[in-house]
Amino acid sequence: TFTLTDHLVSGDEFRLIWNEHYQCFQTHPVPEHPERFYESKDYISHSDSADTAMARVYQRAKKINLNHKLKLVRRYCGQEGVLMDIGAGTGDFVKHAQDHGCEAYGVEPNETARERAHKKGVAVYSRITVQREAIYDAVTLWHVLEHLPDLDAEIRTISKTLKPGGWLILAVPNYKSLDAKYYKSDWAAYDVPRHLWHFSRGSIQTIFKKQGFELRAVKPLWLDAFYISWLSEIYKKNPLAALSGALMGAASNFSGIFTREFSSQVYCLQKEG
């Protein structure tokens, strides 16, 4: 185990402990009132903020990633598939999918983020609704799985909404990447206590195999290494954070070409038919 600090909201300290069942690390203790750790204007995925250099870079990268994500989803579930995005935030991916002809829906528990999505004309709901018949061809979770307190229950619910042979596509940070090993307790993607779980390729395969999913492909999110490294350098109070972060991001991506361990990875899992 080792100790991590919440750099975003509280300054509180947390530990990572090994979870044998899931074969991954777990944040300890789990907050009794997790919602208060999201209450920051700097939590950009809920605020749509663009008033700092970091926020502007995040928003620009998000727009680039939207195209990449949609192409990835369509590669597996086709042009006509029905999509649900869980942890939709302010609704950008759902809106992007709808604007490109997809039937897409979003789920987001945070009220502030939902309101921002609604202002964009995107219907984002507060929770997953399980119907009598599974209706979705694909379910996406972009940096969401690590926030869910009860993994088994959430995955079972998601599975009930997916058609047999449907696709679950999720992105999570990878603690085995070069930048994670370099920054150690300052690695921004640990993001305790908002991130309750810390995954590797092996843990994702273990968790979802038990729930009837086969891992079909693993893809990198190239831009994440630069953003995470930059933020990690800020946590280290490096006055040259942007430059140092860019260099480490590039190094991590280059390393990932050979090790297949990227800073953030997209896992494409297929539900058994």
Rank of each mutant, 00 (worst) to 15 (best):
E13R: 14
K62P: 01
E103K: 08
H21L: 14
P34V: 14
G106A: 13
K41P: 04
R75W: 09
G87S: 14
H68L: 12
T112Y: 13
Q79H: 12
H33D: 15
K120F: 07
P31K: 07
E108W: 00
K119R: 12
S10K: 00
D51V: 03
V122D: 05
P31Q: 01
H33P: 05
H21S: 10
L8T: 01
Y76D: 01
L8A: 04
G78N: 10
C24P: 03
A104S: 12
R15I: 08
A50N: 10
A117I: 12
C102R: 09
Y105W: 08
G11D: 00
F37Y: 14
E20Y: 11
V73S: 02
D51W: 08
R56V: 07
R75M: 09
L66D: 03
N110I: 12
A123M: 08
I64D: 09
V94R: 00
D42Q: 14
L70Q: 15
R36K: 13
G91W: 00
Q59N: 09
S40K: 09
H96T: 00
F93R: 02
E35Q: 15
D92F: 00
E111W: 12
Y43A: 09
A113T: 08
G101W: 01
R74K: 14
P34F: 15
A61C: 11
H96W: 02
T5K: 13
F25S: 01
T5R: 12
Q98Y: 07
F37K: 09
F14V: 01
G11H: 12
H21V: 12
